Deep mutational scan, measured.
Amino acid sequence: QRITLKDYAMRFGQTKTAKDLGVYQSAINKAIHAGRKIFLTINADGSVYAEEVKDGEVKPFPS
């Protein structure tokens, strides 16, 4: 399943989102408010992988 960072954070909370991605909650808040195009893939085992689309390139998040 693929979902935006904002939607994932709204569904699970910023604290869990940060923990799942290995970053601080403040980084999640800042990324959402900056309007960054970050998409999360939720794997069947429950693990989460995030990618950011920037300038036409897709890069892992966090980099």
Rank of each mutant, 00 (worst) to 15 (best):
Q1S: 11
R2E: 05
R2K: 13
I3W: 15
L5S: 00
D7Y: 06
Y8F: 04
A9E: 05
M10I: 13
R11E: 11
F12A: 03
F12V: 07
G13C: 02
G13R: 01
Q14S: 14
T15I: 13
T15S: 14
K16S: 04
K16H: 04
T17Q: 01
T17R: 01
T17K: 00
A18Y: 02
A18S: 07
K19L: 11
K19P: 00
D20E: 07
D20H: 07
D20M: 11
D20K: 07
D20I: 10
D20W: 03
L21Q: 00
L21G: 01
L21C: 04
G22L: 04
G22S: 05
G22I: 03
V23I: 11
Q25E: 15
S26A: 11
S26H: 12
S26C: 12
A27W: 11
I28H: 00
I28T: 01
A31H: 04
I32K: 01
H33R: 14
H33A: 14
A34P: 02
A34E: 15
G35Y: 05
R36D: 08
K37M: 13
K37L: 14
I38L: 02
F39G: 01
F39K: 02
L40S: 00
T41M: 12
T41P: 00
I42D: 01
I42C: 07
N43M: 14
N43A: 11
A44I: 12
D45N: 09
D45F: 05
G46D: 05
G46V: 02
G46F: 06
S47P: 03
S47L: 07
V48C: 06
A50R: 01
E51R: 06
E51F: 09
E51Y: 09
E52I: 04
V53F: 13
V53W: 14
K54N: 12
K54D: 12
E57G: 10
V58A: 10
V58P: 06
K59D: 04
K59N: 09
P60E: 06
P60I: 07
F61T: 02
F61C: 05
P62Q: 05
S63C: 10
S63K: 10
S63G: 12
S63Y: 12
S63M: 12
S63N: 15
